[in-house]
Design a protein around this nucleic acid. Structure first.
Length: 404
RNA sequence: GGGUAGGUGGUCGAGUGGUUAAUGGCACCAGACUGUAAAUCUGGCGACGAGAGUCUACGAUGGUUCGAAUCCAUCCCUGCCCA
């Protein structure tokens, strides 16, 4: 079998491995069951999950068998690692519906057919029936508080009040691995590097119970050169669901990354061969824009399909390169076109309130059909909708189409 | 259970009776410069209102006061120390 671990390493995915040598051997010897956990805390995955899906996809292509674990049970707690506050708890109904939406997104990356078909499980199915006393006796005795609180990720929470409830998260995630190990012969858990301690918990739990064939692998989190998380926008996270983040906005995000991010993004988030990645990311000055275009196109294609990617790219080219017609930018249909410019800005979602819309106009950040709007009281009318639509622009890069 | 320190806007963190929609950092938005980049500089950053202005906000509820994030009472929550 191909050396998938080396492949992942070459592309820069891997951050840590529990037993490098053994994992390499294992993955060349047999088709390995591995799992990745996803917490259904929203009805869509965001870009943070993207790397995880890419890794899972690559491993499956190399002949291994993915398990997508939906954290329907653990999400009621929320992972305290690195967080400064306790997460909001979700109801069962919300979680169930989130699980369903996320499953659909995952299907774009892993195949549920063939010899090494992926499977999806939900830890609510086994966690919700656990008996507290039994659990504490069998699992709770295998963990020590001293070890847990020595971990960096718990330290901040420790100062502000880490509850027992949240501490249970580590035990439950570890138990998930044990459960999948016993029931599905799952040998590897993968996750973002923030999951390292939770993954180790599972590996150690399985060892303590008597098997030594469990491993952990973490991949790099997507960060910018300054170490900030990538994928954050003014509106919050960059979502994979087109209703939350339109393909056009999604494309634009990747089109606008910093030069220093190009290589990482191409390598981690596309399937382009490494020679191509190397070639593109070594382009200099404005030529590197070519690489950004390709990155944006490839990534959008993976998430939204080729058709949407082409549309997004065409829109972008039309807007930025020759001012042409635009079909695929975010659009708002107006019931009444005789509204004030402020209302139009708020309705289109370009700014969250009229106050901010005013600021934008005052600073010269708003234009309508390529004409800068300077009058706060400007009112839209028929003449602004020449071909049935008007183009509202914020700053240099945010476009929105208003249709009548 | 006892003692003690706290709870401020997206976040961190100032502010201890009026000039405070609340210093500053971060995040974010816009302008200038550029390559739809970065860095830098400038402006902005509760809501409503064209504006004057109005409303809502400093854990919660009451109170004192012409006036409270600031003082008092009660309650809720959290850290630390002791048990």
């Amino acid at each position: 079998m191909t050396d998938i671990i080396k492949e992942l390493e070459d592309r820069g995915y891997i951050e840590q491995l529990t037993n490098e040598k053994e994992i390499r051997e294992l993955f060349q010897k047999e088709s390995v069951r591995f799992y990745i956990g996803i917490d259904p805390t929203a009805d869509s995955m965001h870009i943070g999950h993207f790397v995880a899906l890419m890794v899972a996809s690559r491993m499956q292509k190399a002949g291994h068998r993915p398990i997508i674990l939906m954290g329907g049970g653990t999400a009621t707690i929320g992972d305290p690692s690195g967080r400064t506050d306790m997460r909001q708890m979700l109801t069962r109904e919300q979680l169930d519906s989130n699980v369903e939406s996320i499953r659909k997104q995952a299907e774009k990356f892993v195949s549920f057919e063939g010899d090494n078909a992926a499977i999806i499980v939900n830890n609510a199915d086994w966690l919700l029936d656990l008996n507290y006393i039994d659990f504490m006796r069998e699992i709770g005795t295998k963990f020590t508080i001293s070890k847990m609180i020595a971990q960096e990720c718990y330290k901040t929470r420790l100062e502000t009040g880490l509850t027992f409830f949240e501490m249970g998260y580590l035990l439950l995630q570890s138990y998930d691995f044990l459960y999948l190990h016993d029931k599905y012969d799952c040998k590897l858990q993968i996750g973002g590097n923030d999951q390292w301690s939770n993954i180790l918990g599972g590996v150690e739990l399985i060892r303590k119970i008597g098997s030594d064939d469990s491993y952990g692998l973490t991949f790099k989190l997507l960060t910018t050169a300054e170490g900030k998380k990538m994928g954050k926008t003014a509106k919050g996270a960059l979502w994979l669901n087109p209703e939350r983040t339109s393909p056009y906005e999604f494309y634009q995000y990747w089109r606008n990354i910093g030069d220093t991010e190009v290589r990482k993004v191409l390598s981690l988030l596309t399937f382009l061969p490494m020679e191509e990645v190397d070639r593109l990311s070594s382009l200099k000055d404005e030529k590197i824009n070519e690489a950004k275009k390709i990155a944006a196109f490839e990534i959008t294609k993976l998430i939204h399909g080729e058709e949407e990617a082409i549309k997004a790219q065409k829109s972008a080219e039309a807007l930025f390169e020759n001012n042409g017609n635009v079909e695929n930018m975010p659009t708002t249909k107006l019931e009444n076109i005789n509204i004030s410019i402020l209302d139009a800005i708020v309705l289109s979602g370009i700014a969250p309130s009229k106050g901010q819309a005013k600021t934008l106009i005052a600073q010269g950040g708003i234009s309508l059909n390529d004409e800068k709007i300077e009058d706060i009281t400007y009112s839209l009318s028929e003449k602004d909708f020449k071909d049935g639509y008007a183009i509202l622009k914020k700053g240099k890069k945010v476009f929105h189409k208003l249709e009548k």
